[in-house]
Amino acid sequence: MKSQMSLRKQLKELFDKQRIGVLSTQKKNRPYASLVAFAVTDDLKSFVFATPRTTRKYSNIMASSRAALLIDNRSNRMSDFRRAMAVTAVGNVRELRKSGKNRLIRLYKEKHSHLEDFIKSPTCAVLCLEAETLHVVDHFQHVVELHLNK
């Protein structure tokens, strides 16, 4: 098994390279999945994303703050079964206060500068998934968990 340091390095590289992940939310037993552009902090604990407040995902999050975000590097080739890595971050989602000083929002804007106008809109919410655990899958079925709060 990899050391924590090398695993964290590998994850950071993956998160930096990938721009979009799959967010899973649910309300009243109705699960839902959607694509979101994300940015992550160096400690791998905070996953920032943005969404209009009228969306189903926002409504779900307001009803239940528990969510999961899947980020992977698949290329839709057969070699994905060997080479692809998928990480599911699981935790609570909270809405961020939109302030120019907010380091998480700054981080998000740095990665997705083309979304600056999008997040500026008063109808757009910037949210943060505070991950407790990262479930890391590689080699098709090999799974380890990185517990961030231990």
């Binding site: 098994m1 990899k2 050391s3 924590q4 695993l7 479930h135 899958v137 080699h139 098709f140 079925q141 090999h142 799974v143 380890v144 968990e145 990185l146 517990h147 961030l148 231990k150």
Partner: peptide, 12 residues
């Protein structure tokens, strides 16, 4: 003793 922050979940 393994690093307890990394937990093996599924081994092949």
């Amino acid at each position: 003793i393994q690093d307890r922050q990394i937990m093996p979940r599924q081994l092949i």
